[in-house]
Structures are given as C-alpha cells and as structure tokens.
Amino acid sequence: MEHMVENKETQEQEVALRVEQVGMKFNLSKEKVDNLKEYFIKFIKKELTYQEFWALKDVNFEVKKGDRVGIVGLNGAGKSTLLKVIAGVLKPTEGRVVSKGKIVPLLELGAGFDKQYTGAENIYLYGALLGYSKEFIQKKYKQIVEFSELGEFIDVPVKNYSSGMRARLGFSIATVVKPEILILDEVLSVGDARFRKKSEARIQSMFAQGVTVLFVSHSLEQVRRICNKAVMLEHGNVIAMGDVEDVAAVYNTKLAQQKQRRKKKRKQERLELERLAQLAAQGQDTEALLKEEDAKQNALSGQESK
C-alpha cells in the first residue's frame, strides 16, 4: 500500500536528486600521522589507533525538481559533509547519490584561482575546473567580465585583487551556466551592497527558472526565506524532513533543549566552584580536591556528548 502511494507521488513531480542510504565514515586518529617517520615509530610502538566516526549514517531523501531544500542542524550535525557528498567531492562510504542534471556548487568562490594568473587567465582555468568546455567559456567570456565589473583589472594578476574582487569574479564564472541543481553554503555576501543586490537578483532569477536548490545555513531566518522544504540533521542522521515550517519548529525545540542543557551545565559548574571555595576556606588540601574536580568534570562532559 505504502509503496503505491510513493509511486504516485513520484509520477507527479520529477526527482532531481536522490540520496540513498548514504553513510560517511571517517577514521579519526588522536594525532594526525602524516609522515613515514612517525608512522614507522608508531607502528613499532603499536600506537596506531583509529577511532571510527560516522559523520553521516543512513541518510535518505529525495528532492523534487524545482524544490528549494534547506539543510539545517546544529554544529557538527554533518551538513557540510552531506553537501560535499552531493557535490561529488567526497565519495560516501555507503550508499549513493543519484542526480539529474548539472550540479553547480557555489562554495567558497574563487578557491580555485591561481594567484599568479591574471583574471582573464583564471576565467579559463576556473571554468575548466568546473567542467566547462573551451568554446563555452570563449562564448561567455565577455558576459563574465561584464558581470564581475572588473574592467581593466581583468588583466592584473589575481594576487593583487581585493577579496571582494576575487569573490565577484568567482561568482560571475560559477553562475554563468544555467545549473539544474544549485548548492549554496550560507547566503552569499559578495562584494559591496550594490553587487550583492545584483548577485542576489541573479540567483533569484535562477529560482524563477525552476532550478533545484540545496541550501545550508545556521540561520533559520534565511532558510525560511529561501526554501520551501527542509531536512534536519542531528549527529549524521535525518531527524526531520518535509515542509520548511514543520522542520523549523523541530529545529527550534532542539535549539531550546540545547540551550537549557548548557544552562544547567553552567549552573552545575558554578555550584561546584562555590563548594570548592568553601572547602578551601575551611583549609583543606585544595590540590587533591582539584583532581577530584577534574574527574567529575570529565564524567560530566562525557555525559553531555552522549
């Protein structure tokens, strides 16, 4: 019965992106061993221990074409990892991501620029990195330069650019295509107020053309403004998805819970300190007490992370 209902739904709207059973495992070592010498020493001393850590586990969801999905979650929930998996940068340990159409990630614009290259040369290099063809860049070159408003600075090495200029150029190159799926990390604040308006207008026009959007942000405000759907992650698991308002409600309760827990913890800490001060005043051995205190603190934080 359930199966049939699902089928009906997919028929109504095309699926642009499907995340199937995605899990991402990291091996965390206490210290990073990145050279042969240390590796060898640790290997002999048998100190090579890794801790497994699942940044994502059993993540399943579908994005319909034209949907604008916000991905929300507290710090360390796995949002960025999920975006990287969807963008194809990280290969998931389990599961897979099926997408239809060109994905354009607007993440940290201009990260691929070569500093010694001029703006003009970087247009070709960055375009090639994004997988554009030579003909395409040649055709769009004028448009890119125009939109970036760099004028004659286009022939100056990028190392002499201001960060705003660099972001402007990056934005102009990345958005010259018409992507089917757009990945946005936080809201783009590119350049000065005027350029920001212009770039927002460009993204809005993409929205209007029915592009599918994945958007990550800490700000619920922004997610509500931009998205119609949302997915909430906690410790790598999807704990809520659906309409943006419903998920926002869950997010708010979670946030309130976390605040309360923090408050409680702080209160406990204060009480402990007071007790310690009292005892110290009574002339007891503070050092032994401090040790005891540490142990307690550790147990407490251990509880917290659970």
Binding site: D114, Q116, E121, Y124, A128, S133, K134
Partner: peptide, 21 residues
C-alpha cells in the same frame, strides 16, 4: 574527454608560470 580542456589548461599554467617571473 569532458575534462580534456582542464588538462590542457593545467599544462599551460605550469609552463606559463614557470617562466613568468
């Protein structure tokens, strides 16, 4: 073939930058 252009860009960059300074 999709990234052929990238390869030529990278080669060009290496050669250009080596002697630019």
């Amino acid at each position: 073939t999709k990234y052929k252009f990238l390869l030529s860009e990278l080669v060009k960059k290496d050669i250009k930058l080596k002697y630019r300074r």
